[in-house]
Structures are given as structure tokens and as C-alpha cells.
Design a protein around this nucleic acid. Structure first.
Lengths: 186, 186
DNA sequence: TAGTGGCGAGAACGGCGGTTCTCAAGGCGG
DNA sequence: CCGCCTTGAGAACCGCCGTTCTCGCCACTA
């Protein structure tokens, strides 16, 4: 297999395992078995487990952002656009196999021990906030930075609630709150 | 030392270590050293690390709830009362040594591996939501259950943002959003 | 003073898991 | 055919850590 393809394959497999079982319970041996790649190759491609995890998070980041972007892009009305991310969350929460945000999980698990992971998480969160701020500006709210921040709080709050309390309606609550925030900001 | 005092002492020490360094990096040996209690006694009082962690979370839960309750109790106006929890968060985020919600961290770290921890986290989150709902009802909002849920999203969102992004202003954003939610709900 | 039982200090155990090493198989140039 | 390099499969290494065990010490009792 072409090295690049193999690399992608490994990341996909590892990401799936990490998301399903968590970071700690998934050993390199297990990834090797699931990916059908010798440990040696694994360590040639990713010199440590942290680096492999970081690659997985990067992939998740790209996928999530493109999915949200696509969802938002299909909406015409600039105000309705702003609620798109929350509808995305709502759909996601109801998918079978959903059990929380990878980034939150990874952050909690490896914590300060892996700066590269912390960076990946923060990058992801900041990008989401930037997107929301951008949408707010396009919708013509007065203070798009403030509203963007408030929407980011709602977005992450929905995620946290869905993760910790298993509340699949969290996105709906967030959406409703977002409408109130928008109404106040327009 | 009286057994009860010793138990409290151990929980305090362990809780401090868990919060500062995370669950995994803090070993039982380290707790023994910090508390000045032999491993044997430790295991007599808490048959496993998970149980000790659960005791720590219970303590945090009680402390947090009583602190918020106290804060809220000192406010007269029922509407202003609802913003009390967010002011509490704001103060907390700015305290030196703050680095996120213990419950979120513990949940991410031990995850599904320790049901007792999951239960403790959910209990905590549900209690907060119940408090917010109660306050919303006292403030006379139309649908206190819905508003309570929205405020819970904001509360957890602020915590998540402060934890992951290190954004100390998260509580202020949440507070502002809470005002909008309240205005829409009254 | 001999027996007993709890206690503290620390060693030891057992398994796990990230990382590295061994070794045989196989392609490839000469 | 012969060295030489790479590869794959898996064993081995090494440190960590939750948990348990050992053993000497002291208090108490008769």
C-alpha cells in the first residue's frame, strides 16, 4: 500500500477506536491488530501515541468543520444560517454511536500531559468560535464578536450536556437560547 | 487521629492532588505521601482508587452547590438571582489555580470505566440544572423547565470554554446570553 | 514476661502497555 | 549463488501503578 494511503488508513482506524473506547483503553497493540499494520510501521509513521492521537484529532477537526460548513452553506437566509450549527449538533447527538465530543474526551484524558493534544483541542474550539462570529457578522448583528462568543458558549454547552448527561435534547435547548441571543443582538 | 477526621483529611488531600494534576498522574503512593497515611489505612478507608475519587467528587459537589446557594441566597431580586450562578463562575474562573471543572476532567479521564464516577458527574450536573430551573420558576418565567435547560447549557458551556480554551471571560458571555434568554422567557 | 493484636513503613506482586528488539523470509544487485 | 537491505510478526523490555503482603514495633493484658 502507498505510504500515504496507509497513513490515512491507520488514522481512520485509530480514530474510530479512540472515539469508541477512549484514549487510554486503546493500546498500540490494539491499533496494530485493527489496522493490520506491524508496530514497527506504526512507530515509523507516528513516533508516539500522542502524535497519532494528534493526527486523529486533526482529522476530526477537518471533518467536523467541513460538515458544519456544508450544512451552513446550504442555507440561504443569513439569520437561519446561524442556527445551522445547532441543527447539525442535534442531528449528530441522535446518531447511533454518539457519545460525546472527541476533543473534550481527549483533553480530559491526556490533559496537560500532551501539549500537542491541548493545542489541537484549542485550535478546533477557536475555529468554531470564529465561524460563529463570522456568521453573526454576515447576519448583521450589532456586536458580532460578542454574539459569536455567546453562541460558542451555547455550542460547547450543548456538547458538554450531551456528553456528560446524555441529554440528546441539548442541541434543541441551545438552539432556542441562540434564537434569544440573536433576537437581542439584531 | 479520629477516623472521621482522617477520612476527611485524606479526601481533602486527594481532591487537591486530583484537581491540580488530574486523576491518572496522581498515584496512590503519592496520595499516601501527601496525606501521611499508610497505604494500608488508605485501602481500609477506600477499597479502591475509584471509590476515593468518587468521595472527592461528592465533596466537590457539596462545596460547589453550597457556594452557589450562598451566593444566590444573598440576592433579593428573583431575576437577578438567576444571574448569580454566572457571577459565581466568573469569580471562580479568575481564581489562581483554576483550570477547569473537576467533573468534566474526571469524566474524560476515567470515562465509562468507572460507573460510580459517571454517576457522580451526572448527579452534579442534574442538581445544577434543577437549581437553575427552580430559580427560573421563582423569577416567574413562562416555561421554567425550558429556560432552566437553556441556562444549564450556558452554565456548562462557560465551564467548557474556560476549561478548554482558557477563556476567563466565558462566564461573562454566558451571563449576557442568560439575560437574553431570560428576557425572551419572561 | 509471654502472648496478642493492631499499626506503620515499605517492599513486593501482578498485570498492563508504550516502545524497542529479534529473527526469519524474501526481494535485489552482482 | 551470495551478501545485503527491508519487511512483517511477534516476543521482549522496562517502567509504572493499583493492590497486597511482610515484618518489626508498640500497647495492653494477666
Amino acid at each position: 500500500m502507498i505510504p500515504d494511503d496507509l497513513r490515512v488508513h491507520v488514522v481512520e482506524v485509530a480514530d474510530d477506536l479512540f472515539y469508541t473506547h477512549g484514549v487510554h483503553p486503546v493500546t498500540m497493540h490494539r491499533i496494530r491488530d485493527a489496522a493490520g499494520v506491524p508496530l514497527k510501521r506504526l512507530y515509523q509513521m507516528f513516533p508516539s501515541k500522542d502524535l497519532l492521537l494528534a493526527a486523529c484529532l486533526d482529522r476530526r477537526d477537518q471533518i467536523a468543520r467541513s460538515a458544519i460548513g456544508q450544512r451552513v452553506g446550504s442555507i440561504e437566509d443569513p439569520v437561519a444560517k446561524l442556527l445551522g450549527p445547532f441543527d447539525f449538533l442535534n442531528d449528530w447527538f441522535r446518531q447511533p454511536g454518539f457519545h460525546g465530543c472527541v476533543f473534550a474526551g481527549a483533553f480530559g484524558e491526556v490533559g496537560a500531559a500532551a501539549p500537542i493534544v491541548v493545542t489541537a483541542v484549542q485550535t478546533h474550539k477557536l475555529a468554531l468560535r470564529a465561524l460563529l462570529t463570522e456568521l453573526a457578522e454576515a447576519a448583521g448583528v450589532r456586536d458580532s464578536v460578542a454574539v459569536g462568543a455567546q453562541l460558542a458558549v451555547l455550542f460547547d454547552g450543548a456538547m458538554a450536556l450531551a456528553t456528560f448527561s446524555g441529554d440528546a435534547d441539548a442541541a434543541l435547548h441551545a438552539r432556542k437560547a441562540a434564537q434569544a441571543v440573536l433576537a437581542a443582538g439584531l
